[in-house]
Design a protein around this nucleic acid. Structure first.
Lengths: 218, 218
DNA sequence: TTGACAGAGTACCGAACGGTACGGTACACG
DNA sequence: CGTGTACCGTACCGTTCGGTACTCTGTCAA
């Protein structure tokens, strides 16, 4: 059975090399020109393939958009550290800061921004299929990674909390704030302009998080 | 030559009653059907006006979208309390909680969500005009309100911080977190499902904020 | 060699949309 | 009463886009 004969199944993340190069071209179009630039003719031209192949592989235009999200999510699959329980507090702090930097880097990346804009622009009163896909494939990954990280911090005696999810929400809010929305709206966020500002913001966020959920009192 | 036929309007509303009713109809279309539903013919049909009038009043389709944002922002103009310096800590806490509830209520409102989706969907690599407008007309208002609120808290001796903007960012992150993005993606956020969950979340956020920026140590 | 097949390239179709033009109507004003 | 004006309703135009069909070329296996 050829791989091409199972097209529009969202759970199927196995794309052929040709299909991946097509999705790559489509992502570049999206990043550079927004949703308006994602036309079937445009993708076919940019990827040197025929429109007929696009429809055979992805079903319809929505299938292409969904495949773009699935493909990009499978590409960014972060190195999910296993939650090793014991480390020094300093090592854990560095781990936490690395997570924060990674989070901001991903959220501010042009491809992530473009896909989030795409899914949000499509959403309406009823739940958006692209939005669901983005949450399932993209957001849950970083959330899971953060949850095991927090748990390892608790086991190592660095952190103290009752509700892991609540602690994660707080951490996320302290790190990201409204930066994500502002970026998606096209604003130039000064916190991310240079390395120094970004590092200062991250230290501030982590410090506040420690004040709230650190084991030692202040 | 100004076409505005309302000489003695309040300086704020630059739109005539007829134009406002048209914008109201356009907003309803947007809320119910997303950006795709904002067609010139659709607006004209829903508002019982002619397409020619639309183009005379707003220039082109983008002008209609911009007018929708401007009009909605002028409508939601919150009662900006003047920063009265002295209150009891309890009164200030209630004020802060009221601000948080208002903030979440506005952000989760269908019209605000639809307009944010619209502006984000239009944004691209270069800054979006709608995004700038939304930030300028919508976001800055609540930010200013929060800043004077925080300052009054500092003057009343309840809060303690060096950088007002930094404190506001923290407060915003604690209250909103990633709820706004999840709502825009179409997710049903359980924190906003019922009054109890919302109130609990708000108390948690305010409490954390006090732990970070309250005057008395814990 | 030949047949099957995947896929590129192109032409085409119908629908929808942005924008314009025009006729008809109500109303204000002199 | 005549004239101008604002505006509605509708018809119309050019363009674009999603989706389909058809032709042609390269590849591979029997």
């Amino acid at each position: 059975m050829n791989i091409n004969t199972r097209p529009h199944n969202p759970a199927d993340s196995a794309y052929s090399d040709r299909q991946m190069s097509v999705l790559e071209a489509a992502l570049e179009l999206l990043v550079n020109g927004g949703e308006k630039a994602i036309t079937t003719a445009g993708i076919a031209r940019a990827a040197n393939c025929s429109k007929e192949s696009l429809y055979k592989w992805f079903g319809d235009r929505d299938g292409i958009l969904a495949a773009m999200i699935t493909y990009q999510a499978s590409k960014v699959r972060v190195s999910a550290r296993l939650g090793g329980p014991a480390q020094s507090p300093q090592a854990f702090c560095a781990e936490l800061e690395k997570f924060g930097i990674d989070l901001l880097t991903v959220l501010a990346g042009p491809t992530s921004l473009a896909l989030n804009r795409l899914a949000i622009g499509q959403a309406s009163l009823d739940g958006s299929a692209l939005g669901k896909l983005l949450i399932e494939r993209g957001r849950k990954a970083v959330r899971e990674r953060a949850l095991v990280l927090l748990q390892s911090g608790q086991l190592a005696g660095v952190l103290r909390f009752d509700d892991r999810a609540e602690a994660f929400d707080t951490l996320y809010g302290l790190i990201v704030g409204d930066m994500h929305v502002r970026l998606m709206l096209g604003e130039k966020v000064p916190t991310l302009a240079n390395e120094a500002a970004q590092s200062a913001h991250m230290r501030q966020a982590i410090n506040n998080f420690y004040l709230l959920y650190g084991r030692e009192q202040i």
